[in-house]
Design a protein around this nucleic acid. Structure first.
Lengths: 338, 338
DNA sequence: CTGCCGTGCGGGAGCGCTCCCGCAAAACCG
DNA sequence: CGGTTTTGCGGGAGCGCTCCCGCACGGCAG
C-alpha cells in the first residue's frame, strides 16, 4: 500500500509538497501539483485517515447521536445530514441510544467521542445538563436538531406555533373536546418538543374557551403502538372526545388504528391530526402539520461544518411547518347535524 | 488531555504496560492492572483512536453501505447492526448511495473506506462486479444483507420461497389473475431480491396453471409512490386483475392507495399482499410475508466481527419469513358469488 | 544443580501523516 | 536598483499509540 513517501519519491518532491499538493493547499506550483496528482493516481495512493488525524488533530468525522434510526423523523434527518456531510468529505459516525418505555436511556458517554470526531449532531434526544456539559467539554462544535439544550445551537420547528395551528384547525372545524397525545411522562426537559406541543394545544384550547383538562391528555410515547393504546384509554375515559391532536404522525396513526378498533369512524366520529408529514400519511389520509426532517438534517450538517470552519452560527434555525389537510379531520358529526 | 505517557509516569510503569493493562492483554499482574486503571480514571485518560489505529492497523470501525436509511428495511437493519457493533466496542460509519428512479446510483468508491474500516456491511444494495472486487480488494471482511454477491457472505431471506408462498396465499384464496409489482427495470443482478421474488411469483403461477404474463408485471421501484402509480397502470391495462403481490410492503401500500383512488375496494375488489412486515402494515391491514430486518442487521454485524476475529463464516445465513394475514387479502368477489 | 519455560515488565522503533521553519529564487515597490 | 515580500519547496520533529524484543526472576522437571 503506497505511502506518502512513495509518492514523494516517485514525483521527485518532498512529502511536505505531496501533502500540500493533494490537499489543495497553496505554495505549490500548478505543474508540481498536477504531477503529484498524477503519480498519486498511478500508485493508487490514498492518505491514511488515522495518520492524518493523529498529525493534524482533525478527524473529518462527525458524530450523529440519535435514539433510533428506524423512526420517520430520525431516519430522514440522518439521511439529510449524512449526504451533506459526505458532500464536504466528512464521515458520519452513528451512535444510537434507544429510548424505550421502561428502560432509562443509556447515558451519553463523551469518552467514546473523544478525539474521534470534529463535531457532534444530536438528533431528537433530550439530554440532561451533565450530558450537555460533557459534550461541550469535548471542545468541538455541537448542534441539536428537534430537541434543544439551553445556550446550544438548535435546528428545529416552532413547536408551540405548530401545535397551536394544529389545534386551531380542529377548533375551526367545530371541535371543542380535543384530546392530546404527548410523549412520555419522563419528557420534562423544558426545551423538548413534546412540552411545547402540549403548551400549544393548551393555549389554543384556553384561548378558544375550551378547557384543556389533564383528563384529555395521554402518553403515546411517540410510536404507533403508544398512540393506539393511549387513544383507547382516552376514549374510554372521555367518550365525548371528538378530535385528537397527536404530537407525531406515528402516534396519530396509532390513534386512527384505535378508532377503527373501537368502531369509531374517522373523521366522522373522530378527527385526528398529527405532526410530521410522514411518508405514509397519505395512505391513511392523515391530516398533519408537515415539516421537512431531511432539510433540517442538511441544515444542521452545513451549520456544523461552518462552525468547524470558524463561521459563527445563529443560536436557532427555525424551519417552517405547514398544515396538510387530508381526510382524517372534519367537522364533528354532532356539529354537522345541527 | 492526558496521554499514555502521563498514565505510565503517574502509575510508575512503562507505556507498554499501560497499553497492555488497559486493553486487557496478558503479562500484567492484576495489582499493576488495577493501579493503571485507577490512574487512568483519575487522569480521565482515553486512548486516541487515531494513534491506536495508526500503530495497530486496526480501526475498530465498520462501514455500513446502504442506499438510504429512511426506508423500513434499511433503517431497521442499520439499527440492529449498529447496536450489535457498539456492544463489541466497534463504531459504525454510515455511507449512503441514494438509488433514485432516474439517476444512476453513485459508484462505491473503495478509496473512502481504505484504512478507515475493519470490515464492511452492504445493506440491500446490488453492486456490480467491479464494485464487489473493489470492496474485496480492501482486504477486510465483507458481508451482504438482502442483496448478495456471488461468493460473498450473505444474510438474507429465501426470496424465491417467500414470493412463492405469498403468491400461493392468493392462489389458495381463489385468485387466478395476480399482478406483480417488482422493483426497477434496472434490477438485473441475478442475486437481487426483486429477481427472485418475481421468479417465485412466476413459478407459483405457472404451477397453478395461471399464466404469469409479462402484462401482469409492473415496476414499483420499491417505494409507496411507485407502488401507487404502477398499480394504476396495471389495472388500466388489465382490469381483470383481482390480486396483487408486491415485492415490498411499501409498494403494497401504494397499491392499496391506488385501489382506493380507482374506487376499488380492498380486499373485495382487489387483494394485496406485500413482503416485509412494515411497522405500519397493521394500520392498513396489510397482509404480508414478514421478515425481521433488525435481526438480520444484528446477525450480519455479529458474523462480521467473527470474521474479523478469524472465525470462518457460513456463506449464507437465511432468515425466515412468515405469512401474516390481515385484511388486505380475501377471496375475489366473483369467487365469493359462485 | 542445571537448563528451560512462563510471567511481568521496560525500551524503543515504528505507524504515516502534518506543519513549523528555513532557504532560495522570483516578484514587487518606491 | 536595493530592499522587502511572496512563492515554491525541503527537512524533520512531532502526533500518541502498538508491538517486537530483551531481560530478570521464579518455578519446575530431569
Amino acid at each position: 500500500m503506497a505511502r506518502i513517501e512513495d509518492v514523494a519519491r516517485s514525483a521527485g518532491v518532498s512529502t511536505a509538497t505531496v501533502s500540500r499538493a493533494l490537499r489543495g493547499l497553496p505554495h505549490v506550483s500548478s505543474e508540481t501539483r498536477e504531477r503529484v496528482r498524477e503519480v498519486a493516481r498511478e500508485l493508487g495512493y490514498v492518505a491514511s485517515p488515522s495518520a492524518a488525524s493523529l498529525a493534524s488533530g482533525r478527524t473529518r468525522t462527525i458524530g450523529l447521536l440519535t435514539p433510533w434510526v428506524n423512526h420517520w423523523f430520525f431516519a430522514n434527518v440522518i439521511d439529510g445530514a449524512e449526504r451533506a456531510l459526505r458532500a464536504q468529505g466528512f464521515d458520519a459516525l452513528l451512535y444510537t441510544f434507544e429510548i424505550s418505555r421502561d428502560l432509562r436511556r443509556r447515558q451519553v458517554d463523551p469518552d467514546v467521542l473523544r478525539r474521534r470526531v470534529d463535531g457532534v449532531i444530536v438528533v431528537g434526544m433530550p439530554l440532561d445538563r451533565d450530558e450537555v456539559a460533557a459534550l461541550v467539554g469535548l471542545g468541538h462544535p455541537l448542534i441539536f436538531i428537534g430537541t434543544g439544550a439551553p445556550g446550544q445551537v438548535t435546528v428545529r420547528v416552532d413547536d408551540l406555533r405548530t401545535a397551536t395551528e394544529a389545534t386551531e384547525h380542529l377548533l375551526r372545524l367545530g371541535h371543542r373536546t380535543i384530546g392530546h397525545i404527548t410523549g412520555s411522562p419522563q419528557d420534562n426537559a423544558p426545551w423538548a418538543p413534546p412540552i411545547d406541543r402540549r403548551s400549544g394545544w393548551k393555549e389554543a384550547m384556553a384561548r378558544a374557551g375550551a378547557a384543556p383538562s389533564p383528563e384529555l391528555e395521554v402518553n403515546g410515547y411517540f410510536d404507533v403502538e403508544g398512540g393506539r393504546e393511549s387513544t383507547c384509554r382516552l376514549l374510554a375515559r372521555r367518550p365525548d372526545v371528538t378530535a385528537i391532536f397527536a404530537a407525531s404522525d406515528e402516534m396519530a396513526m396509532g390513534a386512527i388504528l384505535a378508532a377503527r378498533e373501537l368502531g369509531r369512524r374517522v373523521p366522522e366520529d373522530l378527527s385526528v391530526i398529527g405532526i410530521d408529514g410522514h411518508d405514509l400519511g397519505e395512505l391513511v389520509g392523515l391530516t398533519t402539520m408537515a415539516q421537512s426532517a431531511e432539510d433540517q438534517g442538511t441544515a444542521a450538517a452545513t451549520l456544523l461544518l461552518g462552525m468547524i470552519a470558524g463561521t459563527p452560527a445563529p443560536e436557532q434555525v427555525i424551519f417552517p411547518t405547514q398544515l396538510v389537510v387530508r381526510t382524517s379531520t372534519s367537522a364533528p358529526v354532532a356539529h354537522l347535524a345541527t
